[in-house]
Amino acid sequence: MALAKRIIPCLDVDQGRVVKGVNFVGIRDAGDPVEIARRYNEEGADEITFLDITASHEERDTTVHTVEQIAREVFIPLTVGGGIRSLQDIRTMLNAGADKVSINTAAIHDPELVRDAAARFGSQCIVVAIDVKRVSAPDDAPRYELFTHGGRKPTGIEAVEWAAKMATLGAGELLLTSMDRDGTRDGFELVITRAITDAVDIPVIASGGVGTLQHLADGVTEGGADAVLAASIFHFGEYTVAEAKSFMADRGITMRV
């Protein structure tokens, strides 16, 4: 028996509602986050990730309240991300019931935040989210860089090097999202997924682009990911988490079924 690969449904939440857009445009309403989290919990999700995609200051309280409600009745790990900028933000989310927080843009502006957060709260609860796009021409050696603002703003930071740096600073896990694939349903960007999983000793979650159950399996078998994250294929009832798990298990992937 080996450690199981994880399926993590992701709730992208805007003003208290679960939404999912294509490349962050054309947002579709998928419902109440507490109700959806409860359903995923019952279907056998291994963890749940909650991303506050607007994360404006006024909506913080709504998010904290929703996290509290989910944590009260969902007894699997819960990661909260979106707008986490300081040790105080992390503390607020952990106190609300999050088991891990995901730091994204703030790690780019201030990498020391990752070190300080890991020292204060433990690496086990610090996830660094890495949003990447391929910047090399199709025929050139692949190069991926970090982007912020939903994939609109380049940073010039090379992705693999950054992943290794985050692991060294104390991140306990990486959440890797291909902004080229996010919302496209074309499958994970496997090249960068494999490059990063090979480069670091900490677990990596693959994210961005899942449209079929085969994509989830590919993230593990081809990309080498420790966990796979998806949103829309679960939200709109195409597949249940249980179906995804048995599909992967049938292909020889160790799952908790």
Binding site: M1, A2, L3, A4, K5, R6, D46, S123, Q124, G172, E173, D201, I202, P203, D226, A227, R256
Partner: peptide, 12 residues
């Protein structure tokens, strides 16, 4: 095979 640390996830 390489095993990630932390040991994170569901084990038997």
């Amino acid at each position: 095979e390489r095993l990630k640390v932390p040991h994170m996830g569901w084990n038997a």
